[in-house]
Design a protein around this nucleic acid. Structure first.
Lengths: 195, 195
DNA sequence: CGGTTCCTTGAGGATGATCAACGAGGGTGG
DNA sequence: CCACCCTCGTTGATCATCCTCAAGGAACCG
């Protein structure tokens, strides 16, 4: 949990519902709100001219997103959309920055959070740029694995979503999966992937 | 300037000199120090199996680098090397974290710094993944332009360095530059690039 | 059971990587 | 001052890989 929900409400935050695929904010828009997910899952992405999308990240229950621009007075570098139906807390930028100032413990939490984000962005951009499709996909799968046991678990992303995250095309992802199945790196049962 | 130099020294920091190409820290090493540049320039990068390098970023005088792992108790995701001869202040992790705790203003500065880094990492990874060579290079050039005037200025990176940053190969960079010259996006005088 | 979304396969093509060889400039030491 | 070396830039030819396009099949849901 990022900021205590009751605290947020006491500062005037409101909860808003978003249907699947509804936009939360759009690239190049001015950043005016702090967002924290109560229910559902949010995807951040960029589109290029051809309509090809690149997923910057997924955010789930309890996580906040789109904060960096609030601190540095920048526009949103990406678009955020409800990946599933969502309930999201919204608080104005001013109030959010005041909370940060008034509660040193919260400020510190955000420092750690941003440090984590940079760390993982450094790792993903490295694996995406330097490596072959199979490697990129494996990096994605490892990062998004819930348990860290050896047991294989269901991958809850479509091949298209994995393609968007790894900067590949669906067909390439599918073909890579075929190879990975052959080498026992994953299992595919009934079109579902287990890793 | 990140943290006041005198303050750092008063907390027991030392200044160390690094020759060009000398390593400051290495990928996967445990993070034990805070580093701040007094003189010179540092490059952070990853190498993959083929020896191909991907540059995560350049850091110049007055900037600190390699802090995120200090906050979250992780190993370094990349290697740092002196790009030119350097003088760098080094402070132990413990003392650094104490400074962060004792001076709220400094803590806040780091929050802003990390926010900026995330913002620019989001932008670069997008332009690198989604786009054609020429576009990637233009993004790099814009990001590293000092003045924001329209006047063309000398690009102080070799073609190899630009290739490492954009995830391309030298030859591809050179060929892209040839096209960009033809379309007047850059000038090349005596092998030097002006953008 | 009809529609939508997702998955799959094949063929062909474009693009950037690779390999090899050479040119140009700048600095250093004899 | 010149010869050499080392780094950086350049060019062409060839290759591998991933993208593109097209078509169809499977699963799922109301």
């Amino acid at each position: 949990m990022q900021i205590d929900v009751d605290l947020l409400f006491s500062w005037g935050a409101i909860a808003k519902e978003y249907k699947r695929n509804e936009l939360v904010f759009v690239e190049d828009e001015v950043a005016n709100f702090y967002y924290q997910i109560i229910e559902g899952c949010v995807r951040m992405f960029n589109s290029n001219d051809d309509g090809k999308e690149f997923t910057q990240g997924y955010f789930v229950v309890g996580q906040s997103f789109g904060e960096p621009p609030l601190f540095i007075d920048e526009k949103y570098p990406s678009t955020a959309v409800a990946f599933h139906d969502c309930k999201i807390i919204k608080l104005s930028k001013d109030k959010f920055l005041k909370i940060i100032d008034e509660y040193p413990a919260i400020q510190k939490q955000f420092l750690y959070l941003l440090a984590k984000r940079i760390y993982s962005k450094a790792r993903t951009s490295n694996s995406i740029i330097n490596q072959k499709p199979e490697f990129r996909i494996l990096a994605f799968l490892s990062d998004h694995k819930k348990g860290n046991s050896n047991e294989k678990e269901l991958v809850a992303f479509t091949r298209q979503e994995i393609a968007n995250f790894t900067g590949l095309r669906v067909e390439t992802v599918i073909r890579a999966f075929a190879k990975m199945k052959a080498t026992n790196k994953i299992e595919i049962i009934n079109h579902k992937i287990y890793f």
